[in-house]
Design a binder for these strands. Structure first.
Ligand SMILES: [Mn+2]
Ligand SMILES: [Mn+2]
Ligand SMILES: [Zn+2]
Ligand SMILES: [Zn+2]
Lengths: 139, 139
DNA sequence: TCACAGTTTAGAATCATTCTAATCCCGTTG
DNA sequence: CAACGGGATTAGAATGATTCTAAACTGTGA
């Protein structure tokens, strides 16, 4: 049957757990982002999607939300294109194929690629993360 | 003992060989870029540098030139920061450390890092290049 | 020296992203 | 349940890197 009165949905719980007030906008965006696994969105694509679903959310809020989710560890930012930022619902260790002509990102599971021989960083610096981007083109 | 009349300098030769007319601006910029090896510049940093050297070159020309040099294979573009584009005088196979807080790129020679296990791209796509960015932070 | 295609450039335009400051609303209190 | 307070949303302006436009300039071959 339907939701009981006390049910708030997984999205709400997830947001609360992340220390974010579950507003109508955040719940809607989280619903779209985390319904299916492993999504890669831009602010604009997510705004188009939520708007297309008949929900009114400003682009500024989409930007705010993407950054807050990232800060909270729910998303991670992927830098592959000089023109726009991508946000990834897969926060685990993994890499990407990137098809620049279509702005498409495809996950490569973390265990798949092995990076060996990374030298020690210069004194005073420590490694934050190692990103691998496999740039592909239409054949 | 100075240059003879027929001497035009290496920069000019390099530009001609790349099919680019050796204008005053291009010769100046090429001089700064290729005097020492392995430089990483942004349009703004290069503009500041050429301006600081007392040479008048517009920012638009710096952008034009960086793209033309890249097109000609004299530079390669490096995408590591959502905020700005870097251009690299090292066009060979190599990877980078990137210190985001200071916008600093450091080369890692191509033979140093080995990337294994890159899966075959999805049908219809072929690999263009594999970029590795080792993101570092101040300790 | 001439002519012209390629170049340069000032300034406007673009575009993603951020900022402002006014309004709104979630969660708590009484 | 109504009031309250601070976080959240948002329209619109602002920012900043980059690109574009159109007019002036210049390298080069004849
Ligand atoms: Mn759109
Ligand atoms: Mn500057
Ligand atoms: Zn991913
Ligand atoms: Zn480099």
């Amino acid at each position: 049957m339907g939701k009981t009165l006390r049910e708030k949905g997984k999205g709400t719980v997830k947001l609360r757990h992340a220390g974010l007030r579950p507003t109508r906008q955040r719940v809607e965006l989280a619903g779209l982002l985390f319904k299916s696994c492993d999504r890669h969105v831009t602010a604009e694509s997510l705004h188009d999607e939520v708007t297309g679903a008949g929900v009114k959310v400003s682009l500024a809020t989409v930007y705010n939300t993407l950054h807050q989710f990232t800060e909270a560890g729910l998303l991670r930012q992927v830098i592959v294109d000089a023109a726009r930022s991508y946000f990834d619902t897969n926060t685990g260790d993994h890499q990407h194929f990137f098809l620049e002509s279509e702005g498409m990102l495809i996950d490569i599971p973390g265990e798949t690629i092995a990076v060996a021989g990374v030298p020690a960083p210069p004194p005073g610096l420590s490694i934050d993360r190692v990103d691998v981007v496999v740039r592909v083109r239409r054949t």
